[in-house]
Structures are given as structure tokens and as C-alpha cells.
């Protein structure tokens, strides 16, 4: 789950623009957000209709294509691992000692009752590769000045036809993102909060996802520690690592 969140973040942070202004802005964002690799310890809180629950995990990722996460708590999920590699997704569960591949329509299901689908977490293309971007206007969002950018799909095989992204004008990090259907119907909203400086870069450490068609209070993703540009052994991103 964490892992998906990370991917989404990575996704968000890989923003590139086409329009002159937009491109510059997204480039800066990209520089600010991307790193060779990172190791994140995080907690995710899913606000269900009846109760909320929190999972903690540790995730190693390299670029947008490779990631490996391991759940630390709660007890029921401890030891569950997820591997994303070459556009495929595997889940390992220690209780069954099985590696299960998530594919086909299963990718379209919601992950653990959260407001994210597996597919959301699998998206690993850079924004500038799949969207045309332009700045609509500058706007104040939670006391920060932002560029409001409009992204429109330029490729066909994409889940969300258009997006709106609010980029901090000073720190060049995204603060809010909205995902739209072709018709313009708002489907999902992501808020990025608690921006902190880590290893010399500004980084939002809390992300709240909300499926706008669903009742509920969304899913909250909080990064407790982030390490950029670490030495990550290559075997981590292999199926063999899942069973270890």
C-alpha cells in the first residue's frame, strides 16, 4: 500500500511540462522531487466507514519502475511484501508463503479498501510523457502561492484523462492534485501536506488520497523518515527477496 503511495508520489513528482512556462515549472518540480533512489518508512491510515486502521511499512524504490515494500505493522500484515518490477506486481504473504501476482482486472480493484487502486500505484510513466500541461493561473492554497496547472492526456492508455495540479511557486513541489474523468467529472483528489526540508530538498511528508465518488474520509499517507540516494542492493528488486 505504502508502495503505491510512493509510486504516486513519484508520479506526481515527475512532472514535466510542455508549454514553456509549464515545462519550466515541472522541470523544477522534477528536480526537487526525484532522486536516484530512496528508502522511506511510512504509515498509512485508511479511514473506513466504520473504523480506521494504520499500517506501517518500509519501502525501497529506484526511479519509478522498481519498488519493494515490506509491511511492519499491524501484526496481521507484518511481513507482507510487495514487489513492482517491469510493470508487474507481486504480493508475498508470510502466512501462506505464497507469491501472488496481481494482474488483469484485479489491478482495477481498490487496494485494501483504500482510495487507491492497484492500477493507481502501478502508473510509472512521467507526467510529461503522458500529459500536455499548461499553467492556468496563480492561486493561493493554504496560505501558499501556487501555480494551478491543467494537464490533459496526450496518450490514450491512461486512467485519468485530465488533472489539475497546484504547485508551490516558491518551493516547486505539488500541494494538491485532482484527477478527472473524460467528461470533466472529478474522480479523485490528493492533498500533499507537511512540507519539510530533507537532505536539502523540500518534500511533502503527508499525502491524503480521496476517492470523490466514495463515501468516507480518504486515505492518509505519512512518511516518517526518508533517505535519498542510498546504496540499495540490486537483489532487493527481485522475486527472491519476497520470500526472505
Amino acid at each position: 500500500m505504502k508502495k503505491h503511495s510512493l509510486i504516486i508520489i513519484a508520479f506526481l513528482f515527475s512532472i514535466h511540462g510542455f508549454a514553456q512556462d509549464a515545462k519550466t515549472i515541472l522541470d523544477k518540480v522534477d528536480r526537487n522531487m526525484s532522486s536516484k533512489n530512496r528508502i522511506v518508512e511510512s504509515s498509512m491510515t485508511i479511514h473506513g466507514k466504520r473504523s480506521s486502521r494504520t499500517l506501517t511499512s518500509k519501502t525501497w524504490s529506484e526511479g519509478f519502475e522498481k519498488s519493494f515494500s515490506q509491511y511492519l505493522s499491524p501484526a496481521a500484515d507484518k511481513g507482507t511484501k510487495m514487489l513492482k518490477l517491469e510493470g508487474q506486481l507481486w504480493i508475498y504473504s508470510p502466512s501462506t508463503d505464497r507469491i501472488i501476482q496481481i494482474s488483469g482486472h484485479l489491478l482495477r480493484q481498490s487496494v485494501m479498501g483504500s482510495d487507491l487502486s492497484y492500477e493507481d500505484m502501478m502508473e510509472d510513466r512521467k507526467l510529461n510523457d503522458v500529459y500536455n500541461a499548461k499553467v492556468i493561473r496563480e492561486e493561493k492554497l493554504n496560505d501558499r502561492n501556487t501555480f494551478l496547472m491543467q494537464l490533459t492526456a496526450k496518450v490514450e492508455n491512461i486512467a485519468y484523462y485530465s488533472q489539475k495540479i497546484w504547485i508551490d511557486t516558491e518551493r516547486f513541489i505539488p500541494l494538491q492534485q485532482e484527477l478527472y474523468a473524460k467528461s470533466g467529472q472529478l474522480l479523485k483528489r490528493t492533498e500533499l501536506k507537511d512540507v519539510k526540508q530533507i537532505q536539502g530538498r523540500w518534500f511533502p511528508t503527508t499525502i491524503v488520497y480521496k476517492d470523490m465518488l466514495k463515501q468516507g474520509n480518504g486515505t492518509e499517507f505519512r512518511m516518517n523518515s526518508i533517505l535519498f540516494d542510498q546504496k540499495i542492493p540490486e537483489y532487493i528488486f527481485s522475486k527472491a527477496a519476497l520470500k526472505q
Partner: peptide, 14 residues
């Protein structure tokens, strides 16, 4: 409100 996906998997809702 109905939400569906087009041939490419892109969400649409009307």
C-alpha cells in the same frame, strides 16, 4: 452518476 472506462481504460463519468 455513472462511471465507466473507455476502450483504453480511461475513466469517464457522466
Amino acid at each position: 452518476l455513472v462511471r465507466w472506462r473507455d476502450v483504453n481504460g480511461t475513466f469517464d463519468a457522466r
